[in-house]
Amino acid sequence: MSIGRMIFSLLWALLVVPPAIGQAADASGEMAGTGYFRDQDTVPGSLRFYSQLPGGEGKLWGMGPGKPKIRRSSFKQDAHEGVANFGPEVRCKKCHIPQTKDLHYLRMGITCIQCHRSQPVAGVYHYYSPLNPIRRHAYVCAKCHEGATPSFASYMVHEPNPIASATRNSFPLLYYAVWIMLILAVGVFLFFLPYTALWWIREFFAKLKGRSSHGR
């Protein structure tokens, strides 16, 4: 082994390995990426792939899902580390019922593991997690949605209940949009259904009385 190579290995061992050592990187090829794939993995010249969330932090865009409260387990290599009664044989649905009520799970029949990957399930903010927002669109979304961008990946697969009061803080635009639409829809029915019923009754009795068909 040449001296240069030895120095390189030493530097590698000192500077590069320690930060990652606690995270026990999966040896499989896709997990070993730097995460900075955007500059390398996309088609040159297709500018749209490089855009993050369009619009930045404008008024409307600021009403999206806010910065989520991130649990410590979301940074762990094994998100279920220390969870009581957890084992590889436990079904996800046993604890994650709300996460099964969305289009991906219910309509497309996508299973948890197709996005959250194999055991142990990594926290989504773990450096090597395929669901880390830095590579989520390429490693997870793009498996089905060709050309998925970071912006696209900000779609909330496990969306909150839009009418729940907690959603006002966690995803204000969804909360307000759904409430406004519900009030509009319910308002139309609350007004027109009784109105139409009364109208019908009025005409019916007018007809019974043998006057003209319009009760005049």
């Binding site: 369009p54 999206g64 639409m181």
Partner: peptide
Amino acid sequence: VLTSDYMPGWMLNVALWVHRIEAVL
């Protein structure tokens, strides 16, 4: 995917709900 080039992808969450409610109405 194309839509999320022009607005954040989470606008699709909003769009789907608005679409549904208006359609039901």
